[in-house]
Amino acid sequence: MTSATLVTDRPALKRRAAQDGRRLLTRVSGLGLGVAMLWFSLLVLIPLTAVVVTASTGGWSQFWQAITNEQTIAAIRLTVGTALLVTIVNVVMGTLIAWVLVRDRFFGKRALEVLIDLPFALPTIVAGLVLLSLYGHNSPLGVDIANTRAAVFLAFLFVTLPFVVRTVQPVLAELDKEVEEAAMSLGASRFTVFRRIILPALTPAIAAGAALSFARGVSEYGSLVLLSGNLPMRTEVTSVRILSSIENDNLDSAAAVATILLAISFAVIVILDVIQRRVVRRG
């Protein structure tokens, strides 16, 4: 360790650390951080960097060519468009579900809680099979959306269900009801109370949930395999497009398209971080 250089500014750092109740790294915890960072780099950082580096080795023109391929553009447009649409539905339905779970009491509410987490725990390939059994060829409802764009929409809707609900629910539970009652007693209508008092308090949580649900939708793969038929130009999403490039041993082009997806997930991470800094609470 370069103790000589560290010693000089250590008292100042120590004071600052003590102020917010946090310790400086000791030798053991520093070693722990080093090991953790090495593992995190080998597993996540270096591989993700490799994607971007591979995408850029062929130069800008090759990258541009890979992502402006007609079929790729159709896939990206379908993925992003459907994810946006699903996010809008989730913002409305997710807030509504969170509202009912927090403010309403009825028999079987616990069962609903389990249903909401299920899409998160269910393997994506099983999620596809699950949706296929109700909305596929032998549907008891008589609808067959297999191999259509509606199937992509439905799959995204299923896998992104928990995000808005689970981010809004705790915030809603902690809202002070007295403020609402005060507004009501001063003559505000129920709609005004919702718009002026409840909605502003929920907005950061809704935004965080929406960002997560958009990112999850854009990156979805497993639930679509059996459900959407992966028809080029029609129901093929970006992940499927990348996989077919990998299977054709065209890793450069796969990396180029993957870079677009990474840029989207990175943007979402940044947005989430900004929201979280405002709300302070992590989660």
């Binding site: 996540v44 591989p47 993700l48 490799a50 994607v51 994506t124 997560l212 990112a215 999850r216 854009v218 990156s219 979805e220 793969y221 497993g222 970006t238 992940s239 499927v240 990348i242 996989l243 990998i246 890793l251 796969a254 990396a255 993957a258 997806l261 990474l262 997930s265 990175f266 979402v268 991470i269």
Partner: peptide, 13 residues
């Protein structure tokens, strides 16, 4: 980050 990266991109990486 791993929560929002596509599983296919994870595999590719």
């Amino acid at each position: 980050m791993p929560l929002s990266v596509s599983p296919i991109v994870v595999g590719l990486a």
